[in-house]
């Protein structure tokens, strides 16, 4: 049984995703624990140059083909399957990202390897694999024993420190023959860049961000008043945008924007992992939520367990009066 670890590297428009380095850091730990090699799996067209940023790996397995010039779930899954079949690693790490959703479960289905999704941590102890998955909206952690010779773990962004996985220098490159990629049923058309909104929340110093706890669209006015008094802008979690209460340009999180303001005031946001991914870099995080067990309090610096309609108007008044 191989003790090698494979990290399926994610990149978009020629740029490696931060989570790729986080996975290399975790992969390095696993390789050391099992005594195997750490492979980075790089898929695309004209991407071999990216191997120069993958110095944390012992080897880079490259699948290069013209049909892989742009990400599509089908072609990339086939390419990744070919690489993982060739490498036959003990554990394959895939990002728990948009692309990773396609890839991790797709590879589990294709290869018949067990999958642990939403992993916060993965460990190998005497060859036995355990994975900790963050489920139920981040409210519970499930620790699981994973049987078999191979497994796939989908790693949540932020589960490991990227710094340990960021090393320049090109490891030996192994070219994996690409699989047959004709007759593809999913075809790339184009990439659409995010539209600029009236406000660019990634440039705002102060964000007052609303979540489901706001209850109705009319109540957003309460939060907007505070944001204006503070000289900041209103942003939100995904459900608010899905409801059509705020435009997509205001959405913070995995499928929205990543923000790093000086102040992030999370109002009625429980803190699902997808949201936390987009705001954990804020300098000061203050959370107001009625649920003392809300995961947002784990990343916040200050928390208030209270009804937002009690606290927000009081704070707005205070800020306005500059008392």
């Amino acid at each position: 049984m191989s003790a090698d670890i494979a990290v399926v590297v994610e990149h978009l428009e020629g740029v490696l995703a931060e989570v790729s380095f986080e996975m290399l850091a975790k992969g390095r730990e696993l390789a050391a624990a099992g005594g195997g090699m750490l492979w980075a799996v790089l898929i695309g067209h004209g991407v071999t140059r990216l191997a120069g940023e993958l110095g944390a790996a012992d080897g880079v397995a490259v699948v290069e083909q013209e049909a892989l010039a742009h990400y599509t779930p089908e072609a990339y899954e086939k390419a990744a399957a070919a690489a993982l079949q060739a490498l036959a690693p003990r554990v394959a790490l895939v990002a728990s990202s948009s692309m990773g959703l396609d890839q991790a479960a797709g590879l589990s289905g294709t290869l018949g390897w067990p999958l642990c999704a939403y992993c916060k941590d993965v460990a190998l102890t005497d060859g036995a694999l355990t994975a900790v998955s963050q489920i139920y909206g981040g409210k519970l952690l499930a620790t699981a024993e994973v049987p078999g010779e191979h497994a796939i773990c989908a790693m949540l962004p932020g589960a490991a420190a990227a710094a340990a996985g960021r090393k320049s220098g090109t490891p030996p490159v192994r070219e994996i023959p690409p699989p047959a990629l004709d007759g593809l049923r999913v075809r790339f058309k184009r990439l659409i860049q995010p539209e600029g909104g009236d406000v660019d929340i990634t440039r705002e110093g102060i964000l007052v961000s609303v979540g489901r706890g706001i209850g109705s669209q009319d109540n957003i006015a309460v939060v907007k008043e505070l944001a204006e008094a503070l000289g900041g802008a209103v942003s939100s979690s995904r459900p608010i945008v899905d409801q059509g209460w705020l435009p997509k340009t205001r959405q913070v999180g995995k499928s929205g924007l990543s923000v790093k303001p000086k102040l992030y005031l999370a109002v009625g946001i429980s803190g699902a992992p997808e949201h936390i991914e987009g705001m954990r870099g804020a300098e000061l995080i203050v959370a107001i939520n009625t649920d003392p067990g809300a995961p947002i309090f784990d990343v916040a610096h200050y928390g208030v367990v209270s009804d937002l309609f009690d606290v927000i108007p009081a704070l707005t008044e205070k800020v306005k009066s500059r008392a």
């Binding site: 978009l12 995703a17 990202s97 999913v186 790339f188 058309k189 499928s255």
Partner: peptide, 8 residues
């Protein structure tokens, strides 16, 4: 990520 959308 980052609000980029692919059309397929």
């Amino acid at each position: 990520s980052g609000g980029v959308v692919g059309e397929l």
